[in-house]
Design a protein around this nucleic acid. Structure first.
Lengths: 206, 206, 206, 206
DNA sequence: TATGAATGAGGATTCATTCAT
DNA sequence: CATGAATGAATCCTCATTCAT
């Protein structure tokens, strides 16, 4: 994932580390502002206040910085994903997970849009997203299966497929809401609806 | 007809109509094959078996053919959307609508992927999609409201938001399934799950 | 000059003659409007209300129509050039000639601009203009020489060079005035100045 | 420096300055050789011995180099315009000014032709020329007015119009002589005629 | 004749990446 | 490390002219 051993990968000096960080931050901002295809390497270096050529001292290509920016974002999204899995009812846990995901999405909405964009044409990147999604869906599926064993969810339910479909619902709803931005007020109504639909769809006691 | 100031536009003869049609068909295939950014006008003309310049006799730009290809696709998707709205139970109707949508999606899966792609960077196109989505969501919301009046769906449900969220669920699930192609067998399991989730989420009597 | 025997030169039928004339008129208007390089054959045919292909029934190329339009214009300019050379004083004759030239220029100002334009890159056309100029300068030179023999103009004067220089003065002044259009009112002041300068420069009794 | 949004612009290093200069010189030569429309950027870079893309490191477009080449030329023409305005008679001063202008024109004749060419279709450029001409005409008009106050020129004369007309005479005569090149020997005869006509037209004591 | 479709060479510009200093 | 110049393949679109009907 991280550009490990390419020519000019990790900086060796303190000063180099600072330059690299500046580039990474600048890259994110420019990508958010203009999207991947419309971002020029020059935009990034200018924004970072470093020389054009310095870009290639730290990153082998435009794609490489993007991958790394995305990597950080995924990490951020996943970090906060970690809802304490004990205490409180399943319905409350669903609600909490949804909110946490929403917060992460909101924090990173612009960049999520660009990630969506890159995913439409970059196969390597598609694979990366699929892994992340699979991990997340896997966790949900496991929870559903547990709730089934505990008699909280009907045995009819297909945990894997259900987890996928519900994840798709939340994910895409937030995408349309936050990225394509139909009417960003009324967010509570949206979140409540997502919670309620999830809970009812699973047949969880609310 | 030759390059003046306006777009070349509609052919006036039978022969012209045939050429235009050839281009349109070729465009769709090439777009599906390579995606929008990687499609060269030369690919389209070669595929259509016409001279390079002939493309511009009928379309003012690469964007323009794309728009028209997409238009046809939207029409196709909408045509088959028309599920008879009477007879049979709500749950059955939900199922039928989902299947119809699935069939349309499957028929057009490759192109749907490209549409998704273009929507990530072309604002004009985003708007077009938003309209289509709004129309479709509107119809669902109306059905939900009707069911509420008929006492089939709880008054707690927010018809608009719910319609949106469920549409997002179906849409994105099919996208991931058919376009990103995680495991294309097991489709029945997916569809059954989507049906079941929808029905349960709405609290419809199955 | 006239496109004589090229393929599809002169029309053979009454109807053909009308079409050709329509094209010629349209060509002039479009050239005036957009200049030579920016004129498309399609503009001309559209303006004339004939089919694209019909253009090449009557003219072998875009240049050919231009040549013919210019030819007509030269004829118009020369026709009215013919000031009766008898009666009245030389000064009056100079004045009359200047006015006549001015009228012609004014009538054809737009097209004169385009002719100037084409002359800057088309050698064939440069030659044509040179002939016209030479003819006109020759007439003036002859008049000056006559006036010298009649003792009205000093023998010091070089008739050829003087005729050239004065023609350049009138020509270019009108060009800047009418074509580049610095302040088109005050024309009388300009013409009076041109007359006076010519008369004084030649030392003619006013 | 690389293609961002702004024009590449000024070089920051000695080496860059040299390349830019090479391009500028090459541009002038190619323009002179082939005219503006027939000049390809590739001609310029080949002539300068640099890579195609390097052109766009220093100039945003073909127009842009042309503007700069023309700027230099205008500067050159104006520099040598500076005739000492004191001492010697008005007639002598007129003569000297004409010669100085002639020398400038001769040095730059080829490029003057191209400037004429571009002025026929580029409005921005027309404006530029108008300014230069206005400045030059203004200076002459002032001199004429001064001579009127000193009683050397008749009060009948319209200084502004006269300055324009005489400038047009000299300018266009030199253009036809040096650019369209009717018979380039006999230059002395031409210049003497221009001097004499100017002096007599103004009624200056020779 | 009239019509309108077909052709395809041509050219300006972009921009990721590589080099030289 | 930093800097900024150098490179050149790649691609869209134009439009005069030729053809087929």
């Amino acid at each position: 994932m991280r550009s490990g051993d390419e020519p000019g990968g990790q900086p060796l000096t303190e000063r180099g580390a600072r330059t690299r960080e500046r580039l990474l931050l600048a890259a994110r901002e420019v990508f958010e502002e203009r999207g991947f295809p419309e971002t020029r390497v020059a935009h990034i270096t200018r924004h970072a206040g470093v020389a054009y050529g310095s870009f290639y001292t730290y990153f082998p290509s435009k794609e490489a910085v993007f991958l790394e920016v995305a990597d950080r974002l995924f990490a951020d999204m996943t970090d906060h994903d970690l809802v304490p899995s004990t205490g409180s009812s399943p319905a409350a846990r669903v609600r909490r997970a949804n909110r946490a995901y929403y917060e992460g999405y909101r924090r990173n909405a612009r960049m999520m849009a660009i990630i969506e964009q890159v995913a439409t044409f970059n196969v390597e990147f598609q694979e990366l997203r699929r892994k992340h999604r699979a991990a997340s869906v896997g966790r949900s599926a496991k929870a559903i299966a547990r709730w089934q064993r505990e008699g909280l969810v009907s045995a009819d339910v297909d945990p894997e497929m259900t987890a996928r479909a519900l994840a798709a619902m939340v994910d895409h709803s937030l995408y349309l809401w936050l990225v394509q931005g139909d009417d960003p007020q009324g967010t509570e109504r949206l979140l409540d609806t997502l919670d309620a639909l999830t809970v009812r769809a699973l047949g969880l006691p609310s």
